[in-house]
Simulated assay, not measured.
Amino acid sequence: MKLTHQDFDDVRIVSVVENRIDAACAIQFKDEMRALSDSGPARILLDLGNVEFLDSSGLGAVVAALKAVRNGQRLELAALHPTVQRVFRLTRMDTVFTIHTSVAAAVEGIANAS
């Protein structure tokens, strides 16, 4: 599982390079997300733009990443592919996560909120 990240002021953008998060990589995803959130700022934005497939293990890994953020940190999602967005909607996880249409919209929202 390959993740990249960039820091901008008070947000760390973590991008998933792979096109799927499934049982084969869920544990590695959780471990990498934990390391990136431990050393990150108050807002972590997970860019899922490349992810076209997410199974129940992948969804569990994203939820585990949410549970692993420090007190006062937030994990937000951006750029969900329609099939991935459907998984979040069907499981009602779209009510748990803040989901942005794109990374640009999320960052613009952050800039405009300041």
Rank of each mutant, 00 (worst) to 15 (best):
S57P: 02
A23N: 11
D94W: 09
F53S: 09
P41K: 07
T83N: 14
L36M: 13
V107Q: 09
I21L: 15
T91H: 02
V51A: 01
A42E: 14
L54S: 04
V62T: 12
A42Q: 12
Q28M: 07
E108Q: 13
C25Q: 09
I99M: 08
D7N: 12
G40E: 08
N50S: 13
V63F: 07
E18L: 00
V87L: 08
R92Y: 01
R86Q: 12
S37W: 01
G109N: 03
L59P: 07
H5K: 11
V103S: 03
R74E: 13
L75I: 10
D31S: 15
D55G: 03
L36I: 00
S39D: 12
P41M: 06
T101C: 02
P41T: 11
A79G: 12
Q73M: 06
V96Q: 04
R92N: 12
Q6L: 14
R34A: 14
T101M: 05
K30A: 11
R34M: 12
L66H: 13
H81C: 10
A23Y: 13
G49P: 06
Q85K: 15
D31E: 15
R92D: 06
S102Y: 01
G60C: 10
G49S: 09
C25T: 13
V62Q: 08
A26S: 15
L3P: 06
G72W: 04
T91C: 02
T83P: 00
A64K: 11
I44T: 15
M93I: 02
L36H: 08
I110C: 01
R43D: 06
I27F: 07
G40R: 04
Q85C: 11
A78M: 05
L80T: 05
L75S: 11
Q85M: 11
A24M: 10
R20T: 11
S39K: 11
L46E: 03
F8M: 08
S39Y: 02
A23Q: 13
V63G: 04
A104D: 14
A105D: 15
L90I: 15
K30V: 14
D7E: 08
D38S: 12
R70I: 00
A42Y: 06
A104R: 09
R43C: 03
E108C: 04
R92E: 11
E18H: 06
E76N: 05
N71H: 10
N112L: 10
G109R: 00
A104C: 00
H5Y: 13
T83S: 14
A68S: 14
G72E: 06
K2G: 02
N19E: 13
V16R: 01
F53Q: 09
A26C: 11
D9Y: 08
A111I: 12
R12P: 09
S102H: 03
N19Y: 04
F88T: 07
A61T: 01
L36F: 05
I27T: 15
G72C: 05
A106I: 07
E76I: 02
F8D: 12
E32N: 12
K30I: 12
G109F: 01
T4R: 08
K30E: 15
D38F: 03
I21Y: 13
A105I: 03
G58N: 10
A105T: 14
V84P: 03
F88A: 09
V17Y: 05
T98P: 06
R92C: 02
